[in-house]
């Protein structure tokens, strides 16, 4: 009965009122969401920008010293918990060198519909740097290893050998033939890792006091602010569903034969 009322209200966009903020829980979360989205977006750009070239290089030239050191560093990267990376960066760049700020978002400007962005001010970028590097640091090694392993497997297949035999340029073989086929499993894992990424935003935002939804959630937990906790979990659930749908659509874009490919892989 109570649950029925909750679902009914939720469908109308009413997730209850936060005990602490005395405001509708959904409004509180939507207000903090831009900060988290900007952080995740910036981290994702870093993750893709670093792991794709590194992973491909490590697969194409497995015995090169750069590949070996990248693989060595990646196992170190996996072994350092994300909050420890954050603490280390804060100590180095904020406490010792005093170059970068260690908490908050800095100056923000209104963008659209109440979206306060830190991406328009230099101060905002300075504040964004350490948290996004921290958030990226845990995913980059994972993706380097994944891309390398998948790429090695693809490079060993008959159609890549055939492409070599046709005398195609190496760049074309690596990027068009091999990389496209590496992408499918990488996208799958990326979708799965999103859940972990949400948990890591909570950790990163806590370390850097980044005023996003992760920090908000943890504060709600310590304040036992039940409506806010429920609203957060619901919003995270919606984000999950939307991204997983997007991942499925991406499949089709990357590989038009997606159904055949899935049967072949099983």
């Amino acid at each position: 009965m109570q649950y029925g009322r909750f679902v009914g209200n939720a469908l109308r966009g009413d997730l209850g009122t936060s005990y602490f903020f005395k405001e509708p829980a959904l409004d509180v979360i939507l207000e903090k969401l831009p900060a988290t989205i900007e952080l995740v977006l910036c981290a994702s750009v870093l993750i893709l920008g670093i792991s794709v070239p590194c992973g491909m290089f490590a697969a194409v030239r497995p015995r090169h010293w750069l590949s070996r050191s990248a693989m060595g560093l990646s196992i170190l990267g996996i072994s350092v918990p994300v909050f420890l990376t954050g603490i280390l960066l804060i100590y180095l760049f904020s406490v010792e060198l005093n170059w970068l700020p260690s908490y908050g978002r800095g100056l923000t400007r209104p963008l659209l519909l109440g979206w306060e962005t830190g991406l328009l001010t230099a101060d905002g970028w300075l504040h964004l740097l350490l948290p996004s590097v921290t958030l990226a640091s845990i995913m980059v090694p994972l993706f380097i290893r994944l891309i390398r392993a998948e790429m090695l497997e693809v490079l060993d297949t008959d159609f890549v050998r055939f492409a070599w035999a046709k005398g195609l340029r190496p760049g074309r073989i690596w990027w068009v033939h091999a990389f496209r086929n590496t992408l499918l499993p990488v996208i799958t894992v990326g979708g799965v890792q999103l859940g972990t990424m949400v948990a890591y935003t909570i950790l990163t935002e806590t370390v850097f006091q980044w005023p996003g939804v992760g920090l908000l959630f943890l504060e709600a937990v310590t304040r036992a602010d039940t409506p806010l906790i429920t609203a957060y979990l619901l919003v995270v659930g919606v984000v999950f569903v939307v991204t997983n749908a997007a991942v499925d659509l991406l499949y089709g874009l990357v590989n038009p034969q997606v159904k055949l490919a899935q049967v072949g892989a099983a």
Binding site: V80, I87, I90, Y91, V207
Partner: peptide
Amino acid sequence: GFETLFSGAWWISALPGLALVLLILAVNL
């Protein structure tokens, strides 16, 4: 130790952190 990091007491975070990384790294390798 994170709370005292800014007052210069780095060792309370750093030394347990080192032990933790060493442990995880050994297991991962």
